[in-house]
Design a protein around this nucleic acid. Structure first.
Length: 290
DNA sequence: CGCCCTGTTGGGGA
DNA sequence: ATCCCCAACAGGGC
């Protein structure tokens, strides 16, 4: 389940092993991976290229090549990159053999993952800028920045967090964890958070992502790092997928609801519901904004 | 066995 | 601006 920490883990493990190496051969076994581009054309463009840099932005994994082109990959739900696995694992979609004899395998049961080739640095930046905002780990992601982002937003804070054009890299799991740590209900309209809560949310986002990175990613539904080893963050999930179990903070039963169309877990006591309960009276007592 | 759930993003329609 | 649903698909849980 690649969110920012999982992709970061891939980069940290893989960059030292592949940077400076060249692609000896590549086979895109699943054309959907790079569609609408022609897989043969993508293979031809990559074959023989040196990998100058492997890096990440948001949840995108980026390989910059000697030719100036770049390959922008997204693992989506179930994508995994493996380095020298035994043979070709089931659901291997792309095979890359390096000039040093090592092998990269893109494994993705659900086939949602994608690879997109761009011709140069400008196209790379344009592609990413159109999709991603600053990420919480960026030093520029200050409390002021977050407050500005949230100002006037009426969308539930969870939807706000998941929107990659507002902040990049946080997915469903880390969003739940951060909201729990910040003691904020996921349905709270983002624009109603006070200064303290904004700062708490910022710190919680950063802490959750860092913990995930330190754990080399979350173990969930088969996620593996590049050496095929499971991450360990799942052991530390505080609320995510813990419905029916006691809150680690207060013992109240963790509940599940749907927010932003996603399964959402929270402690109803630590994260009190925003007012405006269903059936509230005084439908016209709106806050007059201003 | 069959139904229901699941990490993501992007697009369409309300 | 926002939201809900859907589309990709496979596998696990019950």
């Amino acid at each position: 389940m690649p969110e920012l920490p999982e992709v970061e883990t891939i980069v940290r493990q893989l960059a030292p092993r592949v940077e400076g190496r060249a692609v000896r051969d590549i086979v895109i076994a699943d054309p959907r991976w790079c569609e609408p581009a022609d897989p043969r054309a993508v293979e031809d463009a990559l074959r023989g290229q040196r990998i100058d840099a492997l890096r990440r932005r948001g949840k995108y994994l980026i390989a910059e090549l000697g030719s100036g082109t770049a390959l922008i990959c997204h693992l989506r739900m179930t994508g995994t990159v493996l380095y020298d696995p035994d043979g070709d694992p089931p659901h291997t979609r792309v095979r890359i053999d390096l000039d040093d004899g090592h092998r990269l395998r893109w494994v993705d049961p659900r086939r949602f993952g994608t690879g997109h080739l761009v011709p140069d640095r400008e196209a790379l930046d344009a592609y990413l800028d159109a999709r991603l905002a600053l990420e919480p780990l960026d030093p520029r992601f200050t409390a002021d920045h977050l407050r500005e982002l949230a100002r006037g937003r009426r969308a539930p804070v969870k939807a706000f967090i998941l929107d990659q054009r507002r902040m990049a890299g946080v997915g469903n799991i880390y969003a739940d964890e951060a909201l729990f740590r910040a003691r904020i209900h996921p349905l709270r309209p983002a624009g109603t958070l006070n200064r303290r809560q904004i700062e708490a949310l910022r710190e919680a986002l950063i802490a959750s992502l860092k913990d995930g990175i330190d754990a080399r990613g979350a173990t969930i539904d088969g996620y593996r790092d590049v050496d095929g080893v499971s991450g360990s963050f799942q052991d530390r999930f505080l609320v995510h997928r813990r419905a029916g179990r006691p809150c680690p903070e207060c013992g109240t039963t963790v509940v599940k609801l749907v927010a932003a169309g996603r399964g959402t877990y929270l402690c109803p006591r630590c994260q009190p519901r925003p007012r405006t309960r269903t059936g509230a009276r005084r439908p016209s007592a709106v806050n007059r904004r201003g």
